[in-house]
Amino acid sequence: MKAAVMRAPNEPLSIEDVTISKPGPREVLVRLKAVGVCHSDVHFWDGAFPAELPVILGHESAGVVEQVGSMVSAVKPGDHVVSILSPFCGSCEFCLSGHMSVCHTVNRDFFNREEGAEPRLSAGGKPVNQFLNLSSFAEQILVHENTLCAIDPEMPMDRAALIGCGVITGVGSVFHAAQVEPGSTVAVVGCGGVGLSTINGAAIAGASRIIAVDLADEKLAMAKKFGATDFVNPKKGDPVEQVKELTGGGVHYSFECIGLKQTAEQAYMMLRPRGVSTIIGMIPPGVNIEVPGIELLVTEKRLQGAVMGSNRFRIDFPRLIELYKQDRLHLDDLVSDRIGLEGITGALQNLKDNKGTVARQVVVFD
């Protein structure tokens, strides 16, 4: 198969012939139809997060099941599926208590082949590392069955793929992690693909005011389509003060969707007493967030994280698709460009350069 291989940070991805293994026990081979290019991929491509090289990046994908290994029960050949980077084992403390999205952070080896087994991916007779249990910048993926969710075959693949990361991260953080209440006020810091999905989720949840915060006026204009009611550009003044002025003291819920120390701290400071700030952006390793300790005590503000929207993806994905069918989840507006495999390096650079017109660039296979 053809795949975009990363061999060095900040260098163009190499389009190569890569060998993919046959499905083993509980493994599924999927022919991909669409893959979203996510800012999380940029963090590994530019070296901000470590990656074992060579590696095939990509993790936001949809396709059709081609083959299944023994003991697979969740999907069958011909099923249309969406992948996720937070698979679940089904038997650990986190899975059994309903927090499946955390499982992969403590049970990583469960989803991989045993040490010494044939690698899932190889090129020139040498192993190629699999990124986040997926490696979706390729024509096919070979994954554990608990990485996949079967979906309605009528769902367009280029929009279905987006549900697997950016959309579930944003919408899921609203629904599951923060549990935004109808009539409440919300601030979303960062209006890329995840931020726009967070805004969309807050609108579906019934928030009365949704304040979009971004340095790019183009992204603020896009945010209006997804449900934002107010707009703050930090170039025009302190964003915390702007949000407090708009809301008479701060919001009930804030979401940080960039992954920076400064914006994470700003999102917390935008809260009113007893507000909840949820960090969604990928803050680099070694970076600490600082908030006034006394505020945690006397105002009861809360600071929390949410990985992949605290999802239960086999429940959430079909529900999100139904919301899309009802024109409530605006996936069509999220796609800013459709590209081929050879266009991935340029798409990563667009995200790194923070181009204001980019929401989600999607690789589409014939």
Rank of each mutant, 00 (worst) to 15 (best):
K2F: 06
A3N: 01
R7G: 07
P9N: 14
L13P: 02
I15P: 04
I15K: 04
S21V: 00
E27D: 13
E27N: 12
L29Y: 07
V30N: 03
R31G: 08
R31E: 15
L32W: 03
K33A: 09
K33P: 01
V37E: 03
C38A: 08
H39W: 03
H39A: 03
S40P: 00
W45Y: 05
D46M: 01
G47K: 06
F49K: 01
A51E: 02
L53M: 11
V55F: 00
L57M: 03
L57R: 00
S61I: 06
V64D: 03
V64K: 01
Q67F: 05
S70W: 02
M71N: 14
V75S: 05
K76G: 05
P77S: 09
F88Q: 11
S97V: 05
V106H: 15
F111N: 10
N112Y: 15
E115L: 14
L121S: 02
P127A: 03
V128W: 00
N129E: 13
L132P: 00
L132A: 13
L134A: 10
S136A: 15
E139F: 00
Q140V: 05
T147W: 07
A150P: 05
A150E: 10
I151S: 02
P153H: 06
E154P: 00
M155Q: 03
R159K: 15
A160Y: 00
V171Q: 06
S173W: 05
S173I: 02
S173K: 04
V174G: 05
G183P: 09
T185F: 09
T185W: 12
T185S: 15
T185Q: 14
V186H: 11
V188C: 13
V189M: 14
G193Q: 07
I199C: 12
I199E: 11
A203F: 13
I204M: 15
A205M: 08
G206F: 13
S208N: 13
I211A: 10
A212I: 12
V213H: 07
A216T: 04
M222V: 09
K224Q: 15
F231C: 11
K236P: 05
K236H: 15
G237P: 13
V240W: 10
V240K: 10
E245M: 14
L246I: 15
T247K: 09
T247I: 08
T247G: 10
H252P: 00
F255C: 08
L260G: 09
Q266V: 07
Y268C: 07
M269F: 08
M269N: 15
M270W: 07
L271H: 07
R274S: 13
S277P: 02
M282Y: 01
G286W: 08
V287Q: 04
E290F: 06
I294R: 06
E295K: 12
V298M: 09
T299R: 12
L303V: 06
V307H: 09
M308L: 14
G309R: 07
G309N: 08
S310K: 03
R312V: 12
F317T: 09
I321S: 00
I321T: 01
E322M: 10
L331Q: 04
L334W: 03
L334P: 04
V335M: 02
I339T: 09
E342V: 08
E342N: 14
G343A: 11
Q349C: 02
G356A: 08
T357M: 08
F365P: 00
